[in-house]
Design a binder for these strands. Structure first.
Lengths: 333, 333
DNA sequence: CTGTTAGCGCTTTCAT
DNA sequence: ATGAAAGCGCTAACAG
C-alpha cells in the first residue's frame, strides 16, 4: 500500500522499449511516424504502449522540438457571454487538431494582458487574443516571439478575425426604415477604434435613408451602462435605438421596464451579437447576430496554420439581423 | 529584415550566464532561490535576465522537476452559464499562484471526458473536473496518476467541492409555505445521484410542512427541457415549482409566456444557481444562489495544495434564496 | 528497418 | 559563493 500521495509512476518510452526488446528510438518512430517501420513491430509496440498506459511526455518532446503542442487563449473577460461561443469554437479546433488550450483572463487590464501574453509565449506555440486592449504595435512586437492572432478585434499588424457589421447594420437600418422610423440613436461602447468604424457605417446608412441619427456615449459595454443610458434615449426623442451590444440592450430593457417605458411601443431596440439570453429577454431582442463560433474556429485555424499566422490579414465574417419582438413601428404621436 | 516567419530567438539561461560571465547553474539559483547567492551577483543576473527578456522555459523545467506548472480544467460544457464564474474563480487562483490553466471541454460525453483527463495528465500537475459525467471509481482510478478534484459534483473517492442545497432549499420551501402554497412540483435533472439527494431533501422539507410534492423528470438540464415540462406542470395542478436549475426555469418561463400562462399568477417558480440572466428574466427569477465563484476558488486551492489533494474530502458551500418576482401567493381558485 | 548518439534548457547534487 | 557535470524523456541525425 502506497501512501496517500503516492503517484503511480508514469511509463516512459524506455519502459516500452525494454518491454518489446527494442531501442527507444524505434518506439518513438513507431508511435510518431506510422508506416515507417516494420508493420508487425509497430503493432507490437503500439500494443505494449497501450498496455502500459504510455503517453508521450509533452515537456520532453517540447524541449527537443521547440513545439509545445499547446495554444493559448488570452481573453479580457471570460464571463462576457459574447466570448463563450468564440472560446468554444477555438477550443474545438485546437482539440481536434490535437492541441491543448491554455486559458488566461486579463479582466480588461492592458498591463495584465501584456504580462499574460509574454508569460504564455514560453508555454504556447501561438496565442489567440480575444478583444485585446493592447494596440496593434504592442501586439505586433509581442508577435515577433510567437505568432498571435486577434479575434473580435482588428489589428493591421497581425492576422485578425472579426465580425463585419455591414450586412447586419444594413439590414437593421432597412428594417427600422420599413417599420417607419425616422430617427435613430446609437449607444456607443468604450472601444474607440471599433466604435468609430461602426458609427461611421451607421451614420452613412442612416443618412442615405434620410433617418436622423445621434450618438449616445456609454461608460462601458455592460448591463449597467445600458440602464444608465435610458434617460438620454428618452430625452433624445429617438424612436429607435441600436445598442453597442446585447449586454447594453439588456440594460436598456430592464431600466425601461422599471420606468414603465414599454419597448417597442415607445422606442424600438436592436442589439448586437445575439448572446444566448437575447432570445430569453422580454421582449425578446431583435439583434445583429455575429458568428461567434465561426470567429473562434476561423481564428484558431489561422493560428495553427504556420503559413498564414505571420502574415497580417483580416477575415471579416458577415453578420445578419435576427428580428424578434423589440422592434415595431414607431409611436404615432 | 527577417522573413515573415522569422522567430525572435528566445534567450536561454546560458545566454544570461555568458553575458554576466558566470555559470548557468548560478543563474538558475539566482532566479529561483533568492538570497542564496551573493546579493550583488544576484542583482546583476536579474538585471541582465530582464534586459534580455529571459523567461524560464517551462518544458525544460518540467522535464527535470516533473512539475509542469500547469493545472487543467475539464468541463462538460463551457457555454453553460453555471460554469462561468466557477471557471473564473479557478483561473484567478491558478494565475495568482503562478500556474497556467488548460481548458478542455467534453461536451457532456463521458468517453471524451475520460480521454481528455488521461491525455491531460501528462501536461498538468493536477486536474479540476467540473460537473463530471464519470463515476467516482473511474475518477479515482485516473486520480492515481495525477491529483483530481471535482467541482460541482460529489465523489466519495476524491476531494470535491459542491454547493449544499440545504440552506437554500429550506429557505425556498419556507418562502413558498409562507406565501400560502400547499403543493410543489420538482423539475428534476438528468444526473441521477445529484438528483436523488436533492429530491430527498426537498421531499423531507415539503412533507415536514405538509406540502404535497411531486417529481417531474426532465430530459435534460436545458432551456428546451424546461419548456417541454410546462404541460406537465399545469397538469400536475401544483401551485409552485422548483426547477433543477435556472436554465430549466428560463425554459419554463418562456414556454409559459408563449402559452399565455402568467408566472407567478398561475404558479410560482424557483430556480437554482442564480446565473446572470436570472435577474434579467421577466419576471425576474426567484432562485437558490450557489456560490459559483467560491466553488471555483475553493476547488482550485484544494487542488494546488499537495497535502490535501489526495485525501477524499468534501467541501459543501452554503446556498441562499434570492427572492425576486417569480414567486407570489398561489391563485385563489 | 533499426540501433547509437547527441542534445534540447533547466535543476541539482557534488566538488571546489 | 560558484562551477562542473549528470540527467529528466524525447527526437533526429547518422550509422549500420
Amino acid at each position: 500500500m502506497r501512501s496517500a500521495t503516492g503517484n503511480k509512476r508514469k511509463p516512459t518510452i524506455y519502459d516500452v522499449a525494454e518491454r518489446v526488446g527494442m531501442n527507444a528510438s524505434t518506439v518513438s518512430r513507431a508511435l510518431n511516424k506510422p508506416g515507417r517501420i516494420n508493420a508487425a513491430t509497430e503493432a507490437r509496440i503500439r500494443a505494449v504502449a497501450e498496455e502500459l498506459g504510455f503517453r508521450t511526455n509533452p515537456s520532453a518532446r517540447a524541449l527537443h522540438t521547440g513545439k509545445t503542442g499547446t495554444y493559448a487563449l488570452v481573453v479580457a473577460d471570460i464571463t462576457n457571454p459574447v466570448h463563450f461561443e468564440l472560446i468554444r469554437g477555438a477550443e474545438e479546433v485546437a482539440r481536434s487538431a490535437g492541441y491543448a488550450l491554455i486559458l488566461s483572463e486579463t479582466q480588461g487590464s492592458p498591463e495584465r494582458e501584456h504580462e499574460a501574453i509574454s508569460a504564455l509565449q514560453r508555454s504556447a506555440d501561438g496565442l489567440l487574443v480575444i478583444g485585446s486592449r493592447l494596440n496593434g504595435s504592442q501586439l505586433a512586437e509581442l508577435a515577433e516571439a510567437t505568432p498571435i492572432v486577434a479575434a473580435n478585434h482588428l489589428a493591421d499588424e497581425l492576422p485578425s478575425v472579426a465580425p463585419d457589421p455591414t450586412s447586419g447594420y444594413t439590414a437593421a437600418v432597412e428594417h427600422l426604415a420599413e417599420l417607419g422610423h425616422r430617427s435613430l440613436a446609437y449607444l456607443s461602447g468604450p472601444l474607440a477604434a471599433l466604435n468609430q468604424s461602426r458609427w461611421d457605417l451607421l451614420f452613412r446608412l442612416a443618412v442615405a435613408r434620410g433617418i436622423s441619427v445621434v450618438e449616445i456615449p456609454l461608460t462601458g459595454a455592460t448591463v449597467a451602462a445600458g440602464a444608465e443610458a435610458v434617460p438620454r434615449i428618452l430625452a433624445s426623442g429617438s424612436t429607435s435605438v441600436l445598442a453597442y451590444n446585447d449586454l447594453v440592450a439588456h440594460g436598456v430593457l430592464r431600466e425601461a421596464r422599471a420606468q414603465g417605458v414599454i419597448v417597442p411601443d415607445r422606442f424600438s431596440l436592436v442589439g448586437f451579437d445575439d448572446i444566448f439570453s437575447a432570445e430569453l429577454a422580454v421582449p425578446s431582442l431583435t439583434t445583429v447576430r455575429t458568428p461567434l463560433h465561426e470567429i473562434g474556429t476561423t481564428a484558431m485555424t489561422l493560428l495553427i496554420d504556420d503559413e498564414r499566422n505571420r502574415t497580417p490579414s483580416r477575415e471579416l465574417l458577415p453578420t445578419e439581423l435576427i428580428v424578434r419582438e423589440s422592434t415595431a413601428p414607431p409611436p404615432v404621436g
